[in-house]
Simulated assay, not measured.
Amino acid sequence: MSDIIVTSNGILRHGGLRFRCALGKGGCKPEADKREGDGATPLGRYALRQVYYRVDRLAAPDTRLPLQALTPQDGWCDDPGDPAYNRHVVLPFAASHEKLWREDSVYDVIVVLGHNDDPPVPGMGSAIFLHVARADYSGTEGCVALALSDLLALLAVLPPNAAMQIVSAA
């Protein structure tokens, strides 16, 4: 099966599936121009590395991707000066980080995209995920976001080597 295709006008397609998605509030920009904190979704092709989910809020998603339940100690380093930059970390953590166990529902399911991770280049962007969209599909910090039901439907049909290609709308 082909890649997941996400267009800069907020449409995600995979096989016969087609979903509305939220993108970065800073728009989309070429991967080489992506910077930490710019709120932009990076254009490019990214492997889907890992799925995390809130075990207290939903059952394990049906997926062939690597799957792990979140805990309140899960975080993601977003400090370009730290050796753990753009990596999963265990909280408490001294450097700047995002908490993955959130009060809202946007991180109830998180799919880690392989953006700036092999190896991470400090300042080129961290924590680019596929996650749950807010009800109004408002802009993300650079991630791609789907309605929970759409995200779960997508995960159920993806092969273990799935990738997402984010492209400019024609």
Results as ranks from 00 to 15, higher is better:
residue 138 S to R: 15
residue 105 S to D: 13
residue 163 A to M: 11
residue 67 L to Q: 03
residue 64 R to H: 13
residue 42 P to W: 10
residue 57 R to H: 05
residue 86 N to S: 09
residue 17 L to F: 10
residue 83 P to E: 07
residue 84 A to V: 00
residue 49 R to S: 11
residue 165 Q to G: 00
residue 67 L to R: 00
residue 4 I to D: 04
residue 98 E to P: 11
residue 73 Q to V: 04
residue 112 V to N: 03
residue 72 P to V: 00
residue 71 T to I: 00
residue 167 V to S: 14
residue 115 H to G: 03
residue 56 D to K: 10
residue 110 I to R: 03
residue 83 P to V: 13
residue 45 R to A: 14
residue 13 R to M: 08
residue 123 G to L: 10
residue 120 P to T: 06
residue 142 G to R: 13
residue 97 H to I: 02
residue 118 D to F: 07
residue 154 L to G: 04
residue 122 P to E: 03
residue 75 G to H: 05
residue 41 T to W: 07
residue 81 G to M: 10
residue 119 P to G: 04
residue 94 A to C: 01
residue 15 G to D: 08
residue 119 P to R: 04
residue 103 E to Q: 15
residue 87 R to D: 10
residue 114 G to P: 01
residue 2 S to R: 11
residue 135 A to S: 15
residue 3 D to M: 07
residue 62 D to F: 07
residue 112 V to H: 04
residue 103 E to T: 08
residue 45 R to F: 07
residue 67 L to S: 04
residue 10 G to Q: 14
residue 71 T to H: 07
residue 52 Y to H: 14
residue 34 K to Y: 13
residue 64 R to K: 13
residue 70 L to R: 13
residue 151 L to R: 13
residue 162 A to T: 00
residue 2 S to E: 12
residue 159 P to I: 07
residue 96 S to L: 09
residue 75 G to V: 12
residue 109 V to D: 11
residue 94 A to E: 14
